[in-house]
Amino acid sequence: MANRIKPFSITRLPGFTAIAMTAFAILYVPIFTLVIYSFNGSQSVAIWGGFSLEWYAVAWQNTQVQEATIRSLIIAASAAVIATTVATMAALGTTRTAQFKGQTLIYVMINQPLMVPEIVTAVALLIVFAVIKVATGYTGLAYLILAHSAFCVPFAYLPIRARLEGMDLSLEVAAADLYANRWQTFRRVTLPLALPGIIAGSMLAFVISLDDVIITEFVKSAGQDTLPTYMLGQLRRVVTPEVNAISTALLGLTILLLTAFFLLTRTRD
């Protein structure tokens, strides 16, 4: 019997395992080190002083950390709601219509923040909001919320669009045949089926906003530090394991939300 030709697999190439293990080590060893040293009983971030939860307690009682955390959650939640709403409307407009001229350009415009370096978007937002601040005198959190919303739209758009493209249009056609108007069709058919993608998009937007540093640094006014920018400021002064504890807590929240996002995107009808 002739030997069957095995299909090509990159995992069989020489050195693949070594390269993969090296890549994983470069990515995750620093993170594991951060988590381990967040339980360091010493004041030094480089010298192990025994296992302790002291720095978690210090971070929990730190008023600045509390304020920055609350501010971060408010901004992230608001930005997620706005970005998801806009992304849902954009996804409906680009998947529930026939092909039209300029559709590719619309895709490019929606996904533009993903293709352009984040600092370019941050500078552009800084210029626009600086003009508005001078004209109105308002310096509240609305600028940060709008900036994060604009940046998060494409992140929310991608899973929502993917979900809508995978849905069977015959269900919506059947609803129309049963004399349902467009709003009834959307509310009773399209929205329930698209809900996993919408929730996944909102969680992804929330995580992106919660972790953002560059846009926040450029747009925020005095006294508007979020948790990531507070940590950045602490690193410029005296580095203590408190920063490691805050980073580990933020990492845990991010992993939790991304795991939920992964599970939702695997949902099948």
Rank of each mutant, 00 (worst) to 15 (best):
T11N: 12
F8A: 07
P154E: 03
I5A: 15
S52W: 13
A18F: 14
L210G: 02
A79E: 08
I145T: 13
A249Q: 05
L264G: 02
Y56D: 09
Q66Y: 02
M231R: 01
A156T: 05
W60M: 12
L114M: 04
I19V: 11
L164P: 00
M89L: 09
L169K: 07
T88I: 03
V213H: 06
G50R: 02
N244I: 02
L232W: 09
Q66C: 10
Q61K: 00
R266W: 12
I70W: 01
T240A: 05
F32S: 08
L250M: 01
Y179E: 04
L253R: 00
V45E: 01
R268Q: 10
L263D: 07
D225L: 08
R96I: 00
L257T: 13
R161A: 00
C152S: 05
L257R: 09
T226K: 02
I132V: 07
S149H: 04
I5G: 13
I208G: 08
M115V: 10
V213W: 07
A18W: 13
A122W: 09
A135K: 11
F262L: 09
L227A: 11
L195V: 05
A90D: 08
L251Y: 05
M203E: 06
V134Y: 06
F100H: 09
G233F: 03
A122N: 10
V86S: 02
Y28F: 11
F8N: 10
V81C: 08
I36Y: 11
L114V: 05
A135L: 09
A142H: 04
E242R: 00
A76K: 05
T33N: 07
L164A: 05
R161K: 02
T121G: 09
L164G: 00
L257S: 10
L125P: 02
L257Q: 10
L141W: 03
F39L: 02
F32N: 03
L193K: 00
F186N: 02
I19Y: 07
